[in-house]
Design a protein around this nucleic acid. Sequence first.
DNA 1: GTGGTCTAGACCACC
DNA 2: GTGGTCTAGACCACA
Lengths: 121, 121, 121, 121
Amino acid sequence: MKFDQNKPIYLQIVEFVMESILTKQYQTEERIPSVRELAVALEVNQNTILKAYEHLENESIIYKKRGIGYFVDQQGYDQIMNIKRAEFIQHTLPDMFKNMQLLNISLEDLKSYFQQLNNSS
Amino acid sequence: MKFDQNKPIYLQIVEFVMESILTKQYQTEERIPSVRELAVALEVNQNTILKAYEHLENESIIYKKRGIGYFVDQQGYDQIMNIKRAEFIQHTLPDMFKNMQLLNISLEDLKSYFQQLNNSS
Amino acid sequence: MKFDQNKPIYLQIVEFVMESILTKQYQTEERIPSVRELAVALEVNQNTILKAYEHLENESIIYKKRGIGYFVDQQGYDQIMNIKRAEFIQHTLPDMFKNMQLLNISLEDLKSYFQQLNNSS
Amino acid sequence: MKFDQNKPIYLQIVEFVMESILTKQYQTEERIPSVRELAVALEVNQNTILKAYEHLENESIIYKKRGIGYFVDQQGYDQIMNIKRAEFIQHTLPDMFKNMQLLNISLEDLKSYFQQLNNSS
DNA sequence: GTGGTCTAGACCACC
DNA sequence: GTGGTCTAGACCACA
């Protein structure tokens, strides 16, 4: 996996796990990869994975069973939705609207970008 | 001026100068405040201002004359637009579209958010 | 290491690192000394080393990994060659030819200087 | 006149005057432009011209008559030749030979560069 | 006056 | 451990 050097790696891993849960790759109450496994898979220090998992644990998205591993919390999916929705409305949207004004981009332009991205992916 | 504690001050100053140019408060080829002046005005160290100015100089947004000061580059305005546009298309947009899919938000929803923000401001 | 008092120390460090790469003392993708290490070794402030490294990073000669260190960029060697070649052709050469005319020195004279220097070294 | 922002302007003016003397545009014992005149002509601060003239005076290349102006010294021409020759041999040449080795440029290559420049000028 | 370099030292986030 | 930000203050060359 390639990481953006401008954002903390552990936060990018948090994102990665969140998306895996949102897309149901990790189901509710299912065990997620161990710290070691993921560290090897992503070619990252174990401490970095641990920090990401602790972060997710603090947000009640995953929980750990001692000696066994980390599991997707029952309320994990909903928690992620809440967090993502809040961030979207409080940061992503205002930020985007501000830039649209500065760059003179209209909602119509947005629509065509949207279609372009959909076609290419 | 109050600074966001989560972002480097010098980058916030970079933003500040860019917006001053975008809004024509600093005109093309006009002299911008000296390092010392701005340091006093913003209550930060001179080195912090200098770092911001050097950053802007690297992006060809401002240039310096020895012993005189910093000036808005002829192509400064366009450079800022290029930078902002690139960031918008490469990061803001894909990020937003991805979140829209995950959060199940449609373009129609976006439109109504847009109108809400416009009314309230 | 002794520094020439007429040139900024950080630029002399830039030169030093470049030559270490050119002479293969630092190999491609190899880690170079940490900011602190080099600061101690050269007896200068950490900020001075950092400034040199940032300069080299801007020229795509080295790159950094968060929390790990600086590494020689894949294209580092070529970049240095490009920079040095450009400087040679745009500055050193025209400067020399101009002086040769003013001082009435011919290409033949140059050849003998060249041989003198080679013999003495 | 356009100045290289990387070198002190007053030194570039020193160069300019030296070349004017070498090419006999300013003859021995002839009066050179007044500080004010040259300042206007080159669009530079008078202090800058003054600094250049004082520098040239220190090297016995020009001398001043109070209330009248600056004049090319009797030994001015020879002085310039000495200075330029010394600099050429001590700095320009070794610097160039060093770069030639690093860049893998031979004396033959130099010859062709030389002819190119002669043709284009 | 202007920008620029450098230091010593503190403090931070990240790996 | 790593890089990075920031400060206070000194000192310099240049216009």
